[in-house]
């Protein structure tokens, strides 16, 4: 006998993500899920973004990593509230991990929460966390073919930041090809071409982010 089900495979995760979202909304916190390859510059983008936030927009960070507190220590050194989540080998954060981290964050005292996901362009896109925006950080040395090779990730993005733009010439990076790949999957997501090292383009990204916040 066949029984129709039609239920999302990750519905248990989605349920917890919805609870997270409700808690963020109740606390008035806007949440970003930052996804990228390892080394694309997620932590650098958080620091560069926080640097340009108006004083009244108070940030916080959840750092997801397989192990170690290297990124969390970097964030904490800037005086930003941060919670480290070690996934213990799992290649992505999931909604229950975020749930567990929440009591350790002063949600009432922050407005913008960055969740730095584990460096991975596949799994992280499938697990909702309860964030308002999914932001993909790509970087020039990874090559301009990433949207074509990891379509699931780029299709799920609300915005894409292309970091390390100071290296565009060195890597003969074809911005138009990259942009076409993104647009074919996702015509709504804006692309910000930036360099966390030089600061170029960060202002446009932060301006757009703040416009979403208010």
């Amino acid at each position: 006998m066949k029984i129709p089900v039609v239920k999302e495979i990750l519905s248990a995760n989605d349920q917890v993500a919805a609870e997270n979202r409700a808690e963020f909304d109740a606390a008035g916190v806007f949440v970003l899920n930052l996804m990228a390859s390892p080394g694309a510059g997620k932590t650098s983008l958080i620091l560069a973004t926080v640097d340009q936030l108006p004083e009244e927009v108070r940030p916080g960070v959840i750092e997801g990593d397989l192990a170690s507190t290297i990124d969390a220590d970097t964030i904490a050194a800037q005086g930003i509230p941060v919670v480290q989540v070690n996934t213990g080998g799992s290649c992505h954060l999931d909604a229950p991990m975020i749930r567990t981290a929440l009591p350790n964050l002063p949600l009432d005292a922050m407005h913008l929460l960055f969740i730095e996901n584990v460096g991975n362009l596949v799994c992280t896109a499938e697990f909702a966390l309860g964030a308002d925006l999914a932001v993909v950080v790509a970087s020039v040395p990874e090559g301009h073919d990433k949207p074509y090779k990891y379509p699931g990730m780029f299709a799920s993005a609300d915005a894409v930041v292309l970091n390390k733009a100071d290296l565009l010439e060195v890597f003969e990076f074809d911005v138009d090809y990259f942009r076409s790949g993104l647009e074919m999957l996702n015509s709504d997501a804006p692309l910000f071409i930036a360099s966390c090292r030089t600061g170029d383009g960060i202002n446009d990204w932060v301006t757009w982010l703040l416009s979403r916040l208010r």
Binding site: K2, I3, V5, V6, E8, I9, L10
Partner: peptide, 8 residues
């Protein structure tokens, strides 16, 4: 990404 049905 979903379970469509089960056969029991």
């Amino acid at each position: 990404f979903f379970v469509e049905s089960i056969e029991v």
